[in-house]
């Protein structure tokens, strides 16, 4: 799909919602998507809320691509694509998804203190899948964390998911890699390229 096709598929532009836990690279991924949108010729807005806690808190950012983007905020039912770097956060943000929206989930759990201290229970996979299904059938699970760990760079699960997203949107992977390379330090480029390729291939290999 070239840019024209992308614009035809999303005539109103694309709203991305990225969600994860502090330290997972949600901000880097949203920077990449903002840069990419600009490189593809869209008007772009990227909004993020810096939480109170540096580690362990929820991080959400909104990226909007369009002809002309006004509001920086994506409200309920407006997210065309959700990129969730953690399963529970996928569930927490699912109400934001648009009726035929797509969600990409990193198959990975980070247990919050409320669970480890016994106050609440982390929902099991079946429950999560069932609940997501109520909102969309367009669900893609990616073993981002496992893949990143295999590569030897556990922090790169965000880039694995970006690879998968690139395949799903049929955007030229070279274009995305260029944007990623501009955002990270030279010494991590090869790790990130591997992570990206693996993510890209998980989607390509999938029978449609």
């Amino acid at each position: 799909m070239d840019i024209k096709q992308l614009k035809n598929k999303y005539p109103e532009g694309i709203n991305f919602l990225l969600t994860g836990v502090g330290g997972q690279g949600t901000i880097l991924a949203s920077n990449v998507l903002a840069d990419l949108g600009m490189a593809l010729g869209f008007d772009v807005k990227k909004a993020e809320i810096h939480g109170m806690s540096q580690r362990g808190g929820n991080v959400i950012s909104y990226i909007r691509w369009g002809e002309h983007v006004y509001s920086p905020i994506i409200t309920k039912g407006e997210a065309d694509i959700i990129l969730a770097f953690e399963k529970l956060e996928a569930l927490r943000s699912i109400e934001q998804i648009s009726p035929d929206g797509m969600i990409l989930i990193n198959d990975y759990a980070i247990v919050p203190v409320t669970v480890s201290s016994g106050l609440s229970v982390y929902p099991d996979d079946e429950n999560i899948q069932e609940s997501l299904q109520k909102f969309t059938s367009n669900t893609y699970w990616v073993k981002g964390q496992d893949i990143a760990e295999e590569i030897g760079y556990p922090k790169a699960s965000n880039v694995v998911l970006l690879g998968a997203l690139t395949a799903l949107l049929a955007i030229d992977p070279k274009e995305v890699l260029k944007v990623i390379a501009a955002r990270i330090s030279q010494k991590y480029i090869s790790f990130n390229e591997q992570a990206f390729d693996s993510g890209y291939k998980t989607i390509q290999k999938r029978p449609d």
Partner: peptide
Amino acid sequence: VPLPARPPT
């Protein structure tokens, strides 16, 4: 599904 909170800590 009850969603466990992820409060700042």
